[in-house]
Design a protein around this nucleic acid. Sequence first.
DNA 1: TCACGTCATTACATCGATGTAATACTCCCA
DNA 2: TGGGAGTATTACATCGATGTAATGACGTGA
Lengths: 351, 351
Amino acid sequence: MPYPSSRPTMRDVAERAGVSPKTVSNVVTGAVTVSENTRTRVEAAMVELDFVPNLSARGLRNGRTGVIGFALPDLTTAFSASIAHSVVEAAHARGLVVQIEETAFEPTREYDLVYRARTHQIDGLILNPVRLQDSVVDHVRHLPPVVLIGEVEQHSTDRVFIDSRQAGRTAAQHLMDQGARRIVILGGTATDMSAKQAALGQRLQGVLDALGSAQLDAAPELQVEVRWSIAGGAEAMREMLAREVAFDAVFAFTDSIAMGALHVLHEYGLRVPEDVLVMGFDNVEHAAYTWPPLTTISFDHQDYVTAALDLLASRVADRGSPTRAVEISHSLVARRSTEGPPRGHTPPASL
Amino acid sequence: MPYPSSRPTMRDVAERAGVSPKTVSNVVTGAVTVSENTRTRVEAAMVELDFVPNLSARGLRNGRTGVIGFALPDLTTAFSASIAHSVVEAAHARGLVVQIEETAFEPTREYDLVYRARTHQIDGLILNPVRLQDSVVDHVRHLPPVVLIGEVEQHSTDRVFIDSRQAGRTAAQHLMDQGARRIVILGGTATDMSAKQAALGQRLQGVLDALGSAQLDAAPELQVEVRWSIAGGAEAMREMLAREVAFDAVFAFTDSIAMGALHVLHEYGLRVPEDVLVMGFDNVEHAAYTWPPLTTISFDHQDYVTAALDLLASRVADRGSPTRAVEISHSLVARRSTEGPPRGHTPPASL
DNA sequence: TCACGTCATTACATCGATGTAATACTCCCA
DNA sequence: TGGGAGTATTACATCGATGTAATGACGTGA
């Protein structure tokens, strides 16, 4: 005895207004002209009965549901939350509703995800992949339109991205301009650059570019794997300190990672930026409120998401058009955390 | 020519397997026994055609969609993101999908929301209200089952809550135990305790309880309105400092607010906890990684959400049963930010 | 006054899955 | 070997909204 059966239908409205169900439908969709007289009568009946159209029925009939999916690794990181918020807002503005899926917590989720994307009658999917290979998107049939956001190397699907390699270069250059010479990289190691982790690869590549032009070498001992969370950043920073190597700056691949690193640096009594410079990536709200405020790579999250929704909308309208890739510009926001020159950290062992 | 029409249907599968559509349905639902032979044949056909059932059709037929709604004020605050994450996870575990709605950004959203909740064919709704009055939930007809989470005074709807008044009492008592006497309250003022803001009211009430038992009075000049975000916390803290009143502790009604406050205190050169104690509420991940780490009121977000989903599930199963309210226990997590006694802040003007 | 065009309205079929009731089939035992 | 129990399968109707084609009403011009 499901509740919807108790809801009024067009038939009920029609009966009350003394017209046929189709006329009610005409009033609702507005596709066909309805005389002013009957229109007002129908509208009154709808109000009286508190009528709301049944979306499942409409979706079944039209093949459109007005629902889009948004899949991301993990809602809890500050960046993800910010993006998710923007997606929901932007979707609302277009009369769309958002279904959220998280992909990070089980290896098989990516697969489940595309399966569910089909089951759940979604008009389109915005996918923020972290480990999603091209193959999954490419090889699954009957997928709704998909737009990728992020720095994935992917050309068979519409996508929105920022030039992460350039951003990485800018970041490293900034740190060097401020006097840094030995930059810890929290975000991945050079050996790690597989297709699976193109985003990390690009940021890292950018850093290496910049180091190269400055004739500095990319010390592998300054690179470390990291989980993309605050706790992950803290762990990675601890590991780095345990390595007992000298460094004078930290470039974290997300602001959250940077916050974890900041915490551990404080814990060890290292001062930012007097001893060590720190910078992040994404410019989440919190970045302006850490202590010291965090220098970071900034881009407009709203623009980012709006571009994705635009792509999705045009893809839904025309499935055959060539795929497009939209770049969102980024910039460096300099805050106190990188006001150099840094004194540098020299581990006790090397004294 | 919407994409779903190109998707294989049960009819297609049936044709390929040489059975009737209903038999395919029987295989999928498993409600009726199907011979081992035909079952395997049908399953093979489903795999070959890459069949996925159409949820709109199923939803239309069954009145259930497998989708629940989650409405919250704002995804970007750390607490909301954490809760949203838990909702998505817990829903996944039950084979449900989550649609997200944000309510904070327009005054009319609450209303829109319940309207949309009905349109969008949702089996149930988990609502984290901030300003949602009882009336909206009570007076709208044909609403799917609703579970409220938060400290709303509300008895006509299932809800999950923590004892915020007790929590406020515990928090204030802790601060006083650590030597605080003049506690800034970032979260609302006493005059402000309307039904609309019962949550704030309860936390505030708890603080006042504790102050009362200690024979301290609730100085109105130490209470301030605040937007529930990091920036809001910072603003409020600045306003408090501008008031040039003496204080020796800050109790922020969320961790995010506390983080904004911490930032501003640093900015003013006040040391935490040497000069001023600070504590928050919610125990989000970040609270352990601020500097100094933040004392806060903690409760299990997963339990919180799981309880809500349980309530929702049983409400969906039986719409007539009496409403229930589930309390989730909380505790105080003491960290460095409240290691007193504090020296106290005395504004220049009062010197 | 009658035929014809215009526009509002209606009857009907359809989207895909599934419950109900009826049918076909299998197997066993008298 | 035929009847009955029991099971696998099918035909059909249905959920609610909406496109299509047909009907109805009305007004205009000859």
